[in-house]
Design a protein around this nucleic acid. Structure first.
Lengths: 202, 202, 202, 202
DNA sequence: AATGAATGAGCCTTCATTCAT
DNA sequence: GATGAATGAAGGCTCATTCAT
């Protein structure tokens, strides 16, 4: 196919490159999420992606860069995911329920773990770490604040400082995701309703 | 006694050994909890304990053994801690509140993380892993079941399968501890009351 | 074929691998024979083979495995060598003379030492040790027994228990090989005729 | 006993010192002979001697020195042993037979191995190595030369270069001792008569 | 003299990364 | 673009040696 026939044009090559990148990133996400950055070996990612380990370095300069790239993507995706959910129709509590579903249910769990790993690990560039510390949780809180305030005014959501409520709530979800990301069934993810009780008005 | 300078007697040596062991275990707990078993280097533990890395091996045969010892201790301690709390006077909800306090507050956080690491990591002896999988969460659930059932009968605790309630509740606490064990203040540990709402009857 | 510069094909890779393996095994044999398993450092073998020490581990899982592989090979080779000699034409004494030549002369000396090291050392897998104890000397004795008996009947070989004669004779040769394997010229390997007198009828 | 009573006088202390030295050297000989210099750990010697490893360093500056001391002693002892045997009454062959007995039989085997190790190993000071190379085998040959020449003249001993005969003969014995020093019964030490046939006139 | 706690050099092994093909 | 051989830094562990008691 790709032998003595006409060579691929630039666009095709570009597309192959992008596909490979996606392929690698998918594999890496899977492995990083389960093993953490230190426990992950490049060979594991290569195996998961079905390519040679040497090829990884054609697409990513280093393990660190690969990890960082994933984290960046995860953060963007989660913000977008959150915005999407917030744009849904319904009461504040409906939206929060949907968001909670999204988080607890979805295969997006790896992203949470990744972010957690990023916060936690040492192999990550300080720059990225700082970036995350400053923007991440605070950003989510600010995204959700209007919703929570509205919910409190509507009497749906428990009273008290909205920011505390939100960051606590997100921390609970994060913690559950971190547990969940491992393939260990000793832990049990609570039902959405159970978690929502934490913030619901009585 | 039998010369101008006598070697240390048995008691003194024993004491030195015990102190060193404690010192090492304390340092190891601290580092393991933050870095995980793979991310922890023996030299880190040695540095934290203020001793040479060689000395570690006078007290523990290997990194693995040190880790395993800590995990065993953590599991015993947590079981005992739980039993202690349950023996306190008061209503079921009072006891659960005390337990929650104990877990969220205390410096026992590293222990939680340690157990989590043990469940999660790959460098752990399978034997220990099996042991934990089979006994840990199930054991805690069984310890708490009478309390929850009593609480449900008294109308203090939300209805539904007690086991599900308990394991979900413990998972939330575990997740929070895992987050908390890192030295990252982006996360926020919820108030005890907030967490309790998850299981409280309305 | 599928690009301007193709990766090596399977055959080429296979060949490289085989050559490297041989190269490493040759170097290892040389060093192990002289230094023993404990006295041999992987870096020595790497240096002798002219490669990095890291590369050794692409070809052999561990020092132990490398050693074991060599021993296995040595045992097979020595048995085959012995069988080959025994198939030569001539009287029993002729054959024994040829065998003795083969052993004392040849560069096969390292193999003898290797087997000796294997019998002697502690770092060797028990499995291999057992294997050798059970099969080695006894096997050689049984291979040679018909020859010696025939030689005794022909009046060429001294009387007495053939097995004792053989194992003693082989021990003498082994001992000489062990000495000889070192690069020390203080020792002197006797002439074949001199050694043969031990078993020759008068 | 040795408590508040009068302290030991110099002579007694000296005697204790000497006894300890002997005790250590005996233990060291035993272990070195079996394990070789690299395979021997100071702790093994201490355990064999029934003392603490720290105490070894009150009597010997280093493992190397301990080994060297043993080798020196072994060489002196073997020379003396040889001289003693040669002073016995009887024909040359009688004396050689006695000598062979002495070597093959006796617990003096460790000494042979020690010397062999000394020739072989790398941890030995070059000075000692040189010393041995130059004096050892040559010295023994010169000690035995008169005896062999006399034996040849008497028609008891095979013809040929006496020095070659002697060094070959001693090499055979050395080789056997080296094998014998290990605790492996796969090898078999030949009878004295069998070995003697190598050098006996027909 | 005697002990064993303590140190650190050095070895085996792993794995991220590079490079020839 | 793709492969896997090759390198070397770094970590776990051992053990000779030192030293306070």
């Amino acid at each position: 196919m790709n032998g003595s026939v006409a060579p691929l044009n630039d666009e095709q090559l570009h597309q192959i490159r992008d596909e490979r990148r996606e392929q690698i990133m998918g594999a890496a996400l899977k492995v990083f999420a389960r093993r953490g950055i230190v426990g992950t070996k490049m060979s594991m990612i290569a195996a998961e992606a079905g390519i040679s380990h040497g090829l990884l370095y054609h697409y990513f300069k280093s393990k660190e860069e690969l990890f960082t790239t994933l984290v960046r993507g995860a953060m963007i995706a989660s913000q977008e995911g959150m915005r999407t959910v917030l744009d849904l129709p319904g009461s504040p509590m409906d939206k929060i329920r949907a968001l909670t579903h999204e988080i607890l249910d979805e295969s997006g769990a790896p992203y949470f773990l990744l972010i957690h790993q990023a916060r936690t690990s040492d192999g990550v560039p300080d720059e990225v770490k700082q970036l995350m510390k400053q923007y991440s949780m605070a950003l989510f809180v600010s995204l959700l604040r209007p919703l929570f305030v509205e919910g409190q005014q509507a009497g749906e959501i428990a009273e008290g400082s909205p920011d505390e409520l939100i960051s606590s709530y997100l921390s609970v979800l994060s913690g559950l995701m971190v547990l969940n990301a491992q393939e260990i069934d000793d832990y049990r993810i609570p039902s959405v309703d159970m978690v929502l009780r934490m913030i619901a008005a009585r």
